[in-house]
Write a protein that binds this DNA or RNA. Structure first.
Length: 258
DNA sequence: TCTACCGCTAGTGCCCCATC
DNA sequence: GATGGGGCACTAGCGGTAGA
């Protein structure tokens, strides 16, 4: 079991630099601290609201490979925090949250929510037309009172207003589709949405309905139809990521918290 | 001429299937 | 069982085409 504040993933120290510009959605030019300007792959295709600040510090992973065109990957961005005079690092790699949540479940950090889990399968095909893939499909241990399979959809959450994290940060028909498909698996299976809050200065989660009103409506409909929401927060550092605990959520930006 | 719609494009990671 | 290739998913901007 990993305690709150402890390291969940460790990696070689990232390289720091200054973001010059992001372009063509996948690319970003960054000036490293030694003055070299490099082009990095940006593994986040969204608008990156509140994170995309040219002139601010960013962190890159150096991973040269014959299979890759670019040697560098943009992993983290520094943003101003609502905590006075503090700054905060945000994880921008959209493929990381799935790994973090899988680690969390394997380390029994979500045992209270899920019970004992015997196996985890990533990217399992499911949905009304069998065209979607669920991020994680959990098979509960036979000792569990509730033996239903658990469909877990993970969403990387980087946008916030003060201490309130919001997802999505743009209209996302794909996100809307995922909510509908989570509703469709309940009650035969459990359906769980995990907003993966990729920054440590967050106290609450709410749907980003300013960006996508339909997503907000579907989020509330999903709650009434049995979909569970478990916002999980993580802290990002130059050579590790920490588990920061589960955050409460609101049905909307104005409503009472759960 | 203007608007709306559709398809293509980018790089990476992952799954599935075929082959050895 | 290990390895490699193919295909898919992700998203918004852009260019081309069709229709008003």
């Amino acid at each position: 079991m990993i305690e709150i504040g402890e390291t969940i993933i460790k990696f070689p120290p990232l390289k720091e630099g200054i973001l010059i510009k992001r372009y063509k959605r996948f690319l970003a030019d960054i000036e490293l601290d030694d003055g070299e300007v490099v082009t990095a792959h940006c593994a986040n295709t969204g608008p990156m609201k509140g994170v995309l600040w040219p002139g601010r510090r960013v962190r890159l992973k150096y991973s040269p490979s014959p299979k890759r065109k670019l040697d560098w990957s943009w992993e983290q961005a520094e943003v101003p925090s609502h905590n006075e005079n503090k700054k905060c690092w945000v994880g921008i790699n959209t493929s990381l949250p799935n790994k973090l949540i899988k680690h969390l479940i394997e380390a029994n950090c979500l045992e209270r929510q899920f019970g004992q889990i015997s196996s985890i399968k990533p990217e399992v095909v499911y949905g009304l037309e069998r065209k979607s893939r669920i991020d994680l499909l959990l098979y509960p241990s036979i000792q569990n009172e509730d033996s239903r399979k658990i469909f877990v959809e993970v969403k990387n959450t980087t946008w916030c207003e003060d201490s309130l994290a919001l997802f999505p940060d743009t209209v996302t028909t794909r996100g809307q589709k995922h909510l509908k498909e989570l509703m469709s698996v309940y009650p035969d299976s459990r359906a769980v949405l995990i907003p993966c809050i990729s920054r440590s200065d967050i106290e609450l989660f709410a749907p980003g309905e300013i960006a996508d009103p339909e997503y907000g409506r579907l989020f509330r409909e999903a709650l009434t139809k049995g979909v569970e929401v478990i916002p999980c927060a993580f802290g990002f550092f130059i050579d590790h990521i920490t588990w920061e605990g589960i955050r409460p959520f609101q049905k909307s930006r104005e409503n009472k918290q759960f």
